[in-house]
Amino acid sequence: MAMTRIAAPAQATAGEIIQLKVLIRHPMETGYRRDLYGKQIPRDILKRFECRYNGETVFAAELFPAVAADPFLTFYTRATESGALEFRWTDQNGNVTSETRQLDVQ
């Protein structure tokens, strides 16, 4: 499991637009670099990030090798009801890293 850092508010008022910041530890190896001996370093990237709010996808990003290592994303969503915010990263081999945060909406 990759290390992740998520900044999401624990509480919000209904209708409020909340900011979500996510970071995941990942080399995002482009596949263009070569090692000391000139051997190509194979590509290893995260392909997709999704944010699900009570199961519904509210934001998604497709990532390419041009995204910097340790991909960092800031995005927004409107707080509608209390529930779970799930953050999912999928790498090129289909491995998923998932984190969940509870959001309490008054």
């Binding site: 637009i17 909340i18 709010y53 519904e56 996808t57 509210v58 934001f59 998604a60 990003a61 497709e62 990532l63 390419f64 041009a66 995204v67 910097a68 991909p71 960092f72 994303l73 800031t74 995005f75 927004y76 969503t77 409107r78 509608t80």
Partner: peptide, 17 residues
């Protein structure tokens, strides 16, 4: 990069590196 949004995003703004 490509970003997919919808009416639930509230605000069409994304920051990344």
């Amino acid at each position: 990069a490509r970003f997919e949004l919808g009416p639930r995003a509230g605000k069409a703004r994304i920051d990344t590196r």
